[in-house]
């Protein structure tokens, strides 16, 4: 059940790349177990924004609070936050020199200091959950894109995070592999994980998201439930965007 304080609170976040104002006052509040989808054209700042949530990008103005901890420049603080925020990348970013199993157990063993046996048991459970148990001893280079992304999801889940961030998880996949990853993400949402997803997958947004945000030029243009967003968009920019993607 949702608790009184939201798990993600981003207030008036501004970011500049030199002179370029990439984030222009973004506000986002995410409750526990909520699935929020960020959509928008390229260059809108949605990837940059999601990466500020786990400090992969810094920001110059505003405030971001994750699970009660404020994102500051302090190093110890950053790593504690990252342990609770899992991230799945567009390019998978699996470690090519380690097996699938080693990829998944790396962080739990070295960061959470779990004994190897426990880490491997949890890893096997996760592999089963994402349906690639038989690939445990293979190397990432031997897997298809869809399989690699599912391993990436398992790797992020192994740290038992409170929040999962997805940065265009299916954009680099062949169409026939997109479905297998979306199935995993959907079941993850149904199990109650808090998720922030940057995606172009309209079907996923429509069926799984609790809220959809449209970003353009560093600002949030519209924020609505899927029903409202797709059937009854308020802003012209949203209508233009929908006409282009639907």
């Amino acid at each position: 059940m949702t608790e009184p304080n939201p798990i993600i609170m981003a207030t008036d976040v501004h970011k500049w790349y030199d002179a370029f104002h990439v984030l222009q006052g973004v506000n986002l509040t995410v409750e526990r177990q909520e699935v929020v989808v960020l959509m928008g054209p390229s260059g809108s700042g949605k990837s940059t924004f999601i990466r500020t949530l786990n400090a992969l990008e810094d920001y110059q103005q505003g405030q971001i609070t994750i699970a009660g901890m404020e994102l500051a420049q302090d190093l110890g603080n950053i790593e504690a936050i990252r342990q609770d925020v899992g991230m799945v990348f567009q390019q998978f970013n699996l470690f090519p020199h380690l097996t699938v199993l080693q990829n998944i157990t790396l962080a739990p063993i070295w960061v959470r200091r779990w004994p190897r046996a426990k880490a491997e048991a949890v890893a096997m459970q996760l592999l089963e959950r994402v349906d690639i148990l038989e690939q445990a001893d293979k190397y990432p280079g031997q897997l298809s894109g869809g399989q690699q992304q599912r391993v990436a999801i398992a790797r992020a889940l192994a740290m038992q995070p409170k929040i999962m961030l997805f940065d265009e998880p299916t954009s680099a996949l062949d169409p026939e592999m997109v479905k297998e990853v979306l199935v995993v993400m959907r079941s993850l949402a149904e199990s109650g994980m808090t998720m922030v997803v940057v995606t172009h997958e309209v079907g996923f947004a429509r069926e799984v998201a609790h809220r959809i945000l449209l970003m353009d030029q560093g600002m949030v243009v519209e924020e609505a439930t899927p029903a409202q967003f797709f059937q009854n968009p308020q802003e012209d920019r949203t209508k233009l965007f929908l006409s282009q993607i639907l």
Partner: peptide
């Protein structure tokens, strides 16, 4: 991306 993925998992710079 390798560094980013490692950082996102909570590994400190040495790890």
């Amino acid at each position: 991306g390798q560094t980013e993925a490692a950082k996102a998992l909570g590994l400190n710079p040495v790890l």
